[in-house]
Design a protein around this nucleic acid. Sequence first.
DNA 1: GCTTACTAGTTTCATTTGAAACTATCTAGC
DNA 2: GCTAGATAGTTTCAAATGAAACTAGTAAGC
Lengths: 181, 181
Amino acid sequence: MDTVQTRKGSSRQRNGAGKSTREFKLHAFLPYRLNRLAGHLSKALSAVYQERFDLSIPQWRVLATLQAEPGLTARDLASATSLDKVSVSRALAGLVDRELVQRSPHRHDARSSILRLSRRGTALFRRIAPLALAREAHWLAPLSLRERDQFLRLLAKLEAGLEIIEVPPTQSVRGAQGSAA
Amino acid sequence: MDTVQTRKGSSRQRNGAGKSTREFKLHAFLPYRLNRLAGHLSKALSAVYQERFDLSIPQWRVLATLQAEPGLTARDLASATSLDKVSVSRALAGLVDRELVQRSPHRHDARSSILRLSRRGTALFRRIAPLALAREAHWLAPLSLRERDQFLRLLAKLEAGLEIIEVPPTQSVRGAQGSAA
DNA sequence: GCTTACTAGTTTCATTTGAAACTATCTAGC
DNA sequence: GCTAGATAGTTTCAAATGAAACTAGTAAGC
């Protein structure tokens, strides 16, 4: 665990018991870098969603998920979108209000609803998706095709390590991960 | 493997001018993935900072930055930490209050202060940094050393493309980027 | 030296967020 | 079928956030 140390510089400080804090640089610290990068991307994207389509990011995630997998419940959506159930509830409230999403009763459970995009919701999604993909392509542009593959592969490895696991939750996947709570 | 589909209909949609929206999958969408990954990391880290040291993430960033570059002003800190000036102001308020950071008057500008870690601040930082680095190492563990280098290199390329640019702002770098405002 | 425009940092306010409480329903044990 | 505990989804509340207003000081033109 401590073996890793990408230490390059020779200057280091002693630290308690012989464990040397390599010169700590925030700008080289992975969580910081990822956070900043992710922040930039979502800020840019959410500007598009918001200004042009009046959707929040949670709403966008719900829309995209329902588009790919119609008939989910709110609970399914929470796990599929990595949002907590409160955010899903709120996102849905807005979407249903604008008639982009339809609720229909769940056959076996009166607490839940089955959710689908309405025709309008689908149409809206079809307008947004190409823009989102274009942005993504734009951000990936600095990388060659090979590099892109590499990057995405490595990203997947990191995700796997965190047990985020790329599981497009296929309906039945139940108590897999304790959601955001 | 095959596209997970509850309902099998037309498997592909045309879209406007022959550009076919590839089946959009949120879980394959870069901004989503990065966001989720970054979210996990900062959540885990901030738990450590918060519970064990009573520091927010902005405070941690400020601490780390001042440790590496004593004598910055609040403005410098904002650009070095990718925080907006409000966050920096608040973070500093807390740190100064707890006497982890010292303010001293700026020689040429009475509006600013020169900021440094106090002895206590430095001591605190030295306790946290190894934990933060250990966590980072832990997260990177799924990658081989080579893969790590690759990943970080590719990350840097993406950052460069966004004009985030890895500039550990060396004191003098002034109007480089217009801060968050 | 005054007036005008600008910048550093703080405060205010409205929005976003998520944890905890709550309501309604479901399931299991009896 | 009735109770006890779990779960789906909503509401409530308090904390975090950031934009805009504000305060205090600087810089430049005259």
